[in-house]
Write a protein that binds this DNA or RNA. Structure first.
Lengths: 147, 147
DNA sequence: TTGCGTGCAAAGGTTTTGCATGGCA
DNA sequence: TGCCATGCAAAACCTTTGCACGCAA
């Protein structure tokens, strides 16, 4: 709704382009500003926050929260939510990345829980929490560095 | 971190008492201050935050994050975290009951995700969402809900 | 008495908002 | 041209920290 009244500005184009070019990474609002800046594109903080809000509301971008007081993470959302019914979501607690995984083991588990434990798992709402490979290696390496 | 060196003060007693009396509800730091205040107990913000940090670190209380900019939610954690390492939590979305399930299928899934998908699942924080047997039967019985 | 706990105030960070200007259509 | 978008600054927000005093053991 009201999406038709959106102007195509230099800033919005740049922000959306960034997400499309980095579909599997996440950024905070401040990181996004700095990444755009290093690309020669200056965008004000207000604009970034307002644009992110719009993208989140439109479903184009997902918003994650790691810890309070820290900045929220934003990540490009590939495809629509309705396409996420036949697989599970794995969320990395470190970087906030959301992985989509669909395999037979998960299906077996669901069937098992349904038959033996009488519990019907909801695919769409369940998120498995843990640590993804890149973050696990980064943690064991001892330092925090990005790109 | 040493729990042995903890003094028993009026404020800490009141905060812990609140969580024990409301094990199934969650509060933000500010809500906690106000609830204690309405009970005639005045506790400074710093004390509340510091006490909550200790309780979280001790595993007595769990800390949730909903949205950025909003306050974190704290909730009493029944039992200690170490007891929840070898099984998963199943939460019924209908009645809210939290089930503890530990079986080989779950362990296999974890191993599979770790080996094939390079994802290390955190037992303690993951909650499988779905519908439990009693609620499922109640729903299929006629679809009459009362609340 | 010792040393932790407390509370106030100030600082730290992220996000939001007001208002004048700039730019898309 | 008419709006919307932008950007700066200031505010609002939650949380942390420094320091002096109070209190449990």
């Amino acid at each position: 709704m009201a999406a038709g009244s959106a102007y195509r500005t230099r800033q919005r184009t740049a922000i959306l382009a960034y997400f499309k070019e980095h579909p599997h990474t996440h950024v905070t609002a401040d990181e996004l500003i700095q990444k755009l800046h290093s690309s020669g594109i200056l965008v004000g903080r207000s604009t970034v926050y307002r644009t992110l809000d719009r993208l989140v509301e439109a479903g184009t971008v997902r918003k994650f929260v790691s810890a309070p007081g820290e900045g929220a993470c934003y990540q490009f959302s590939v495809g629509d939510t309705s396409a996420c019914q036949s697989h599970f979501h794995l969320k990395c607690l470190v970087c906030g990345t959301l992985y989509h995984v669909g395999c037979d083991h998960l299906q077996e588990l669901i069937d098992h829980l349904g038959e033996k434990h009488n519990f019907s798992v909801d695919y769409a709402k369940t998120v498995l929490l843990g640590t993804c490979e890149p973050c696990r290696r980064a943690l064991s390496a001892g330092g925090d560095f990005h790109s």
